[in-house]
């Protein structure tokens, strides 16, 4: 059994870590982008707590996934909204759970179709290991080791809660 997960406490830790990381990195006036859906919920919280000046961006990476030819279209694709110009700006990309790294690969590709950011940092609520690509979080609320059939699901947006779910060892959907 894994210990229960407290979304509020993880969010507090992530906000503190991100504030410290941004101060150290010297990224001036960063922009925040959340990945639809869970990442956007986490990003909304971080965005408010850290007092980002410009509005929050949201990405739906459905059109950039690498499994279209196997699983087809994802239902309920939402429009991506980046209400700012990413050109030469520092970006903080936010997701709920970092697993294989494929979602982040897709998100990076989509971001670069909007322009050329100065840098992109990755902040995640939970880093659960199991990477299939050379991608790492700059800041994480916590780090877990989970077997492939065990997943973490974030529910929200109000309140944000975390729960373990058992699914087949396949990684579809849990990118």
């Amino acid at each position: 059994m894994s210990a229960p997960l407290d979304a509020g406490a993880l969010l507090d830790r992530l906000a503190d870590e991100l504030a410290r990381w941004l101060a150290q990195s010297g990224c001036s006036d960063p922009l925040m982008v959340g990945i639809h859906t869970g990442g956007a919920w986490v990003a909304e919280q971080l965005h408010a707590r850290l007092g980002f000046r410009e509005p929050l961006g949201r990405l739906d990476i459905a059109f950039y996934r690498d499994d279209f030819t196997r699983v087809g279209m994802h239902p309920q694709v939402r429009p991506s909204q980046l209400p700012f110009d990413v050109e030469a700006r520092h970006l903080v990309l936010v997701d709920d759970v970092l697993y294989t790294g494929r979602t982040i690969r897709a998100a990076l590709n989509e971001l670069f179709d909007y322009g050329r950011p100065a840098s992109v940092a990755l902040a995640v609520l939970i880093d659960r290991g199991g990477r299939e690509l050379p991608i790492a979080a700059d800041v994480a609320g916590t780090t877990l080791e989970l077997p492939p059939e065990r997943h973490v699901k974030l529910s929200g947006p109000e309140p944000l809660t975390l729960a373990y779910v058992e699914r087949g060892a396949g990684r579809e959907g849990g990118q």
Partner: peptide, 21 residues
């Protein structure tokens, strides 16, 4: 129409293309 709504913004971006197909 909902799917079209998601594609409507692509034409306003710097790269007017998604890699889907």
């Amino acid at each position: 129409m909902d799917t079209a709504e998601s594609f409507a913004g692509v034409g306003d971006r710097s790269v007017k293309k998604v890699p889907l197909l």
